[in-house]
Amino acid sequence: MQGVQEVLLVDDNPADISLAQEALAECKRQSNRQIKISSVVDGEQAVAFLFRRGKYANQVRPNLVILDLNLPKKDGRAVLKELKSDPELCRIPVVIFSTSQANNDIVRSYQLGANCYVSKPVSLKSYFATLQSIEAFWFGLASLPQEGE
């Protein structure tokens, strides 16, 4: 049994973050895994959080990043690029979670090193189911690198 799983949600819409938190809270109840969710609302905050800069200096590195593509200040693609160019941070799995279903967004994301691309479902039911699948896959099925090794 692993310890607490840290998830970083990057989304400019607080309503979307709440929704994802609700969904992940439901996951927690079902999977009995311990999940801690942090969230930031723009690309600059996301980078600062991940590189532990400024007020995020004491942050624990997340085990999973759920990243929206269209973000203010720094675009999700730029965040992804920066993250995947860093020798340390590149091993953190990044799930792109965007409403865009455009093929060029999907292709570009994988080119930049996204670990998977998931379209935000429109209905609440599939939204919850999707986040449950993401949680189950990354924290249940996949083996993740242990932090600090």
């Binding site: 819409n13 309503a15 979307d16 929704l19 609700e22 409403t99 935000k120 429109v122 209905s123 609440l124 939204y127």
Partner: peptide, 14 residues
């Protein structure tokens, strides 16, 4: 329109 509507639909459902 889809985006804000998704919020309205999701939260009313919730």
């Amino acid at each position: 329109l889809q985006e804000p509507l998704r919020m309205v639909a999701s939260y009313t459902q919730l």
